[in-house]
């Protein structure tokens, strides 16, 4: 039971947060063909926008999620319009450099407005953990995070599978020039990609803020596991990214469990992030296309 309470559930929660980030990275890679390095700091921004609403209006983190999503999406579209769009026909590596610059600009903005101190939402009512069957202890916030992640992913699935825009998006991801010939407006598709990527990033940020604390480099630290998750799932495949995120999150938390039975963690908790990197390195050697057969560039 200790295993489930202290390793499995935190792993699931972390996995959900990674999955939300990785789906955005994967979709953006599929449509815009570059690794979006500012995604981590987009997550930070989403978390801090929610913090603005929790600290000014006394809302809880969860209630300020819609506002965080709204503002993040607007900011994403503006960033794309002013910084990525002019580079649309440059080599993709130029976009990579640009997004690296955007990452630091976003973080500097967060630090400029909110400072560098550790902050948290007012989660007073969420703090009592639930006890199920006397042994299973789950913090209420963890239930919310997991449920909402699944809800958000369901909405995304509906969008991608059923709506015309979702289908257009998958078409552009498969073959951009063919999609354009058939009359799909790629610019519109790109805007919708930002809508999804931005909403998921903001949700990841708010959930991470609810689960732990807010810190100006919280998103940058997520960048590596998120990319690892996207590669694991197969770049360009949003469903793979969800699985990848869950696997990476689980692997990070479970790596410090006392697997050998000697009372010591298998890996010192300080190296959790290293697990994501190790998985990614192994994948790059053995199977760069990921588990769900994504694209290899």
């Amino acid at each position: 039971m200790e295993f489930i309470n202290y390793y499995f559930i935190p792993g699931l929660v972390l996995g959900c947060i990674y999955a939300l980030g990785a789906v955005g990275v994967s979709l953006l890679f599929g449509i815009l063909r570059f690794a979006h390095f500012a995604h981590g700091d987009l997550i930070t921004l989403g978390a801090y926008i929610a913090f603005f609403f929790t600290s000014t209006f006394g809302l809880t983190g969860l209630l300020s999620l819609p506002m965080a999503i709204l503002f993040s999406v607007v900011i994403c579209i503006l960033i794309d319009r002013f910084f990525y769009k002019p580079l649309r026909f440059s080599p993709t590596v130029i976009l990579l450099i640009s997004s690296f610059g955007i990452a630091l600009m976003l973080r500097a903005t967060v630090q400029l407005i909110w400072g560098v101190e550790i902050e948290s939402y007012n989660e007073g009512t969420f703090s009592v953990p639930l006890k199920i069957f006397d042994t299973l202890i789950i913090a209420e916030k963890h239930i919310y995070i997991v449920l909402f992640t699944f809800l958000i992913i369901l909405i995304m699935h509906y969008f991608l599978a059923k709506t015309t825009m979702g289908k257009a998006m998958r078409a552009v991801s498969d073959n951009a020039s063919l999609a354009q010939i058939t009359g799909i407006n790629t610019e519109k598709v790109i805007i919708w990609t930002w809508v999804i990527g931005g909403s998921l990033a903001a949700s990841a940020g708010v959930f991470l803020g609810i689960d732990t604390q807010l810190q100006s480099n919280m998103g940058w630290d997520l960048l590596l596991p998120i990319f690892a998750a996207a590669i694991l799932g197969g770049i360009g495949s949003p469903y793979g990214a969800i699985i990848g995120g869950l696997i990476i999150g689980m692997a990070e938390e479970l790596s410090s469990y006392t697997w050998l039975g000697d009372g010591l963690p298998l890996l010192s908790p300080g190296y959790k992030t290293g697990v994501a990197f190790a998985i990614m390195v192994l994948l790059l050697i053995w199977r760069p296309s990921g588990i769900l057969k994504g694209k290899v560039f």
């Binding site: 690794a35 993709t92 590596l224 590669i231 760069p288 290899v296």
Partner: peptide, 11 residues
Amino acid sequence: LRSDYLAIATI
């Protein structure tokens, strides 16, 4: 691999 992977690996 493509430059994006090298970028991620160097990070």
